[in-house]
Design a protein around this nucleic acid. Sequence first.
DNA 1: CGACTTTGACCCGCGC
DNA 2: GCGCGGGTCAAAGTCG
Length: 171
Amino acid sequence: MSDNKNHQIPEAESPPESDDLSNNWSLELSDYLAIDDDTQWLDDESFVSQHNLYHQNYVFHHQQPIQVGEATSNFEGSSSTNISSGQEKKEARHRYAFKTKSEVEVLDDGYKWRKYGKKMVKNSPNPRNYYRCSVDGCSVKKRVERDRDDPTYVITTYEGIHIHHPSSSRY
DNA sequence: CGACTTTGACCCGCGC
DNA sequence: GCGCGGGTCAAAGTCG
């Protein structure tokens, strides 16, 4: 896999600066799941608004929300630790998961990410990629993993909040 | 030359 | 106390 890199991404690192973006919204209201504290599901509209997700040439499809039980398997170890010890919810615990049907794993959300790790998920032939915001001072992390049941679906989990605007220009 | 990817090793929490 | 599992770091290598 060294010679043939499957970089299907058209390298859209430059975020759309014009309102053309609105027209390029090929996203079909994907049912994304937002995991907060434990496992919460929010509306994709809110998520997109907060994270300014940019979709250009990617054609996403919506699907039914993932069951909490199934998702918990992937995001375990947060509920028990968070609730116990009398430690209430921490402000820094902002976790949002986004399940999308796409061939590309890395969706362009307007931010630049630097991959810092790859792990093989047990009981799953698909690896899990770990990304981090390249901006100094921004400790936002991102986890990308393919659905074990449906390899056509990609689960992107965001953790943290950006301290700057996407592309540090125009918001 | 600088920024980023890659891959294995290391670390930490938890269960047995 | 050790093993397992998931998460992160860091050196080398690659790309622009």
